[in-house]
Amino acid sequence: MSGLVEFLQADGTVVEVRITEVRGSSPREAGAFLLVCGARIWGTVGGGQLEYMALDEARKLARSDGSVAEMNVPLGPEIGQCCGGRVRLDLRILDAADKARLLAEEAARVAALPEVLILGAGHVGRALAYAFAPLPVRVTLIDSRAEELARAPKGIEQICTPLPEAKLRAAGAGAAYIVATHEHSLDFLLTQEALARGDAAYVGMIGSQTKRAKFESWAVGPTEALMCPMAAANKGDRRPEVIAAFVVAEVMTALAKSPAKETADE
């Protein structure tokens, strides 16, 4: 969201390129859009030759006396693409009202994204924050240590609190919880809280099979939903970035299957 705000607030004429009609196969769906302001761009209509053509037309429109334009593009060999469909693109120069509309749309889109709570901003937690940053989720990194949060990527929501369980309880239904704090006892407490909700799309706790066994002997209630060890497909690579990549794949798969996702899509 902050990236869009900065883009729209910068000087220069901004042209919106929006896919308004799709027939057959295309790299993006109707409604996808791209913003163009000189050499700067935000968003995408699918890349490839289609996007190069759209960028060229947007910059021509910005230099012209007009305010709107239209492109009807066959996605075939004639432009070097093999999708085989056809798309219509509407281009227009944005005024203040248009920019306000876009920001409202983006805020609503972000609010509807599934939540991912990373509980612990240590080396694995930070690697997870970096890995999730470009994905269509709302990520919150939570820790009691301000110095660790300060090392996390910019643009990710960060909460410094001595009571992370309160943030866990306040999350919406269908969220994903990744527990990777600096204390085993805190990991157990937060994992218990996440499982007890009964509405999580994913609950993962960092650790080994031994740690899981200790947790299961301590926990109250069912633990079958717990993913521990996380990154099950990882064959022993302990680099934080590699662990994060495998965990992100697990979480995104779980979110795609969750009842909350299915309800939102209806």
Score class of each variant (00 low, 15 high):
Gly48His: 10
Glu51Asp: 01
Tyr52Met: 04
Ala54Leu: 03
Ala54Met: 03
Leu55Ile: 15
Asp56Asn: 07
Glu57Cys: 11
Glu57Ala: 14
Lys60Pro: 00
Leu61Ala: 00
Gly66Arg: 11
Gly66Asp: 03
Ser67Gln: 06
Val73Lys: 10
Val73Gln: 05
Pro74Tyr: 02
Pro74Gln: 07
Leu75His: 10
Pro77Gln: 05
Glu78Gly: 15
Gln81Gly: 10
Cys82Met: 14
Gly84Met: 05
Gly84Val: 03
Val87Thr: 02
Arg88Leu: 06
Leu89Phe: 10
Asp90Pro: 03
Leu91His: 08
Arg92Gln: 02
Arg92Trp: 11
Ile93Arg: 15
Leu94Trp: 00
Ala100Lys: 03
Arg101Thr: 12
Arg101Gly: 14
Arg101Ala: 12
Leu102Asp: 14
Leu103Ser: 02
Leu103Gln: 04
Ala104Met: 05
Glu105Arg: 08
Glu106Tyr: 01
Val110Met: 01
Ala112Met: 02
Leu113Phe: 08
Leu113Met: 14
Glu115Lys: 02
Leu117Arg: 04
Leu119Asp: 03
Gly120Asn: 14
Ala121Met: 01
Gly122Asp: 06
Gly122Ile: 05
Val124Phe: 07
Val124Trp: 04
Gly125Ser: 08
Gly125Val: 00
Arg126Thr: 00
Arg126Gln: 13
Arg126His: 04
Ala127Phe: 15
Ala127Lys: 15
Ala127Arg: 15
Leu128Phe: 13
Leu128Cys: 13
Leu128Trp: 11
Ala129Val: 01
Ala129Asp: 13
Tyr130Asp: 05
Ala131Thr: 09
Phe132Pro: 00
Leu135Gln: 13
Leu135Thr: 09
Val137Tyr: 09
Leu141Gly: 00
Asp143Pro: 09
Asp143Lys: 15
